[in-house]
């Protein structure tokens, strides 16, 4: 057993054993196109999970369903012990209403491929708007926390800039600060470096690495950065055509996979 995998096992052993997210037989279809065909997945609190796989394999859809941006066609997603898309009323299970979803959604934060910062607000306002209006927190306290967070991602000197005045890498770091200020238990990263110029990727990955090592929230990263996944992730899933083909520690999947499809994918990747 390699040194890396011993390290990975130690990492897993120190994790909290409570599952914060469970996927049970989750499927998703867009018309006749079956994006996901029965996903089963456990994510423990504090666990860092990377999802890799060819494009169109449904990676993004997995996390979009957890963020309640897409509704699963069938199956259950359990967040913090409660079913995300269904609720019980008079003993029967019915589709969840907005209030139920919103309660669970408060545990989850997301960073998008295209940043999606609010262009009409300064970056400080971008960070402050949700804690103040959604969580009804004290404005002064939120402001302090937002400034701290923006300093942490290296933008403490640009508080009153508008998103249009920033580079892609800076925008993505603001997006991360905005999500972190909400103190989620689970953070989702949807190909956060794919829309960036190559020279800006490093600064964004550096921030994610910092969050992964210092914060105890669970993280799910959909990514094409294999080396980064190897470095940060406790667990790696390989997804192909809507099915999880292989999952295990980062080194198991990325370095010692026996699966042909995984090997072919990684070979293609390394060639580039």
């Amino acid at each position: 057993m390699s040194e890396q995998s011993v390290k990975d096992i130690e990492k897993i052993n120190t994790l909290n054993t409570e599952q914060i997210v469970k996927y049970r037989n989750v499927t998703k279809s867009f018309g006749d196109f079956h994006v996901l065909k029965g996903i089963n997945l456990d994510i423990y609190s504090g666990e860092k999970v990377a999802i890799i796989g060819p494009s169109g394999s449904g990676k993004t859809t997995i996390i979009r369903m957890l963020m309640t941006l897409e509704e699963p066609t069938s199956g259950d997603i359990i967040v913090d012990g409660k079913n995300l898309w269904k609720m019980k009323r008079n003993g029967t299970s019915i589709p969840a209403n907005e209030k139920h979803i919103s309660e669970l959604r408060g545990n989850i934060g997301m960073v998008f491929q295209h940043f999606n910062l609010f262009p009409h607000m300064t970056i400080l306002e971008n960070c402050m708007v949700a804690p103040i209006h959604v969580k009804k927190e004290d404005k002064k306290e939120v402001q302090e926390r937002s400034i701290q967070m923006l300093e942490r991602v290296g933008l403490g000197n640009k508080l009153n800039f508008y998103p249009s005045q920033l580079s892609g890498g800076q925008k993505q770091r603001v997006a991360m600060a905005r999500a972190l200020v909400m103190r989620p238990k689970i953070m989702l990263f949807d190909e956060v470096t794919s829309a960036l110029d190559p020279e800006l990727v490093g600064e964004v990955l550096e921030v994610i690495r910092d969050i992964a090592h210092n914060d105890d929230m669970a993280m799910i990263l959909v990514t094409h950065e294999m080396d980064f996944a190897l470095d940060v992730a406790d667990k790696v899933l390989f997804l192909d055509q809507g099915v999880i083909i292989e999952q295990g520690t980062a080194s198991e999947v990325l370095e010692h996979s026996k699966n042909e499809r995984v090997q072919a994918f990684l070979r293609r990747f390394r060639k580039i």
Binding site: L69, V134, A179
Partner: peptide
């Protein structure tokens, strides 16, 4: 994406 971001912030 603006709507998605505001959903992600639980608005």
């Amino acid at each position: 994406g603006q709507i998605e971001a505001s959903i992600a912030l639980n608005m």
